[in-house]
């Protein structure tokens, strides 16, 4: 599948993941690469972009027997943006599916 398709929705997926609880970068990367075929490293530029847009914040937390980990946490702005874009995306995806499936039926 074309990488450009995926990149557009990755932000949405990260926000949906962070809506439930805070995660550190590695967990987010693992989650995404389990579900979607992307390069592991792609998630970090994405997280940084979300942070600079104010949709997520970070904080450090000390773990026993290891260096402090950087956790990502969704902001209120992030939540609002997520709800809005989620609705938009689902609506868009549904229309695309309708058209493409209709096309498939025509050929039969």
């Amino acid at each position: 599948m074309n990488i450009q398709y995926k990149k557009g929705v990755l932000e949405l997926l990260v926000l949906s993941l962070l809506k439930k609880q805070d995660w550190y970068g590695y967990e987010i990367s693992e989650y995404l690469s389990r579900h979607i075929d992307i390069a592991d490293g792609t998630v970090y530029p994405l997280l940084r972009k979300l942070k600079s847009e104010g949709l997520v914040t970070t904080y450090m937390q000390e773990e026993s027997g290891g260096p402090p980990r950087k956790y990502y946490s969704i902001t209120n702005l992030g939540r609002e943006t997520y709800e809005k874009e989620r609705a938009e995306y689902l609506n868009f995806a549904q229309r695309v599916a309708e058209i493409l499936e209709g096309d498939n039926n025509d050929q039969k």
């Binding site: 690469s33 390069a39 592991d40 490293g41 792609t42 970090y44 530029p45 940084r48 972009k49 600079s52």
Partner: peptide, 21 residues
């Protein structure tokens, strides 16, 4: 393996935008 899965560093670096803040 890890480096291969992470992707090409040149490409990754280009995905970071410089911070205006």
């Amino acid at each position: 393996e890890i480096a291969a899965r992470l992707g090409n560093p040149v490409e990754l670096a280009s995905q970071f935008e410089s911070h205006v803040e």
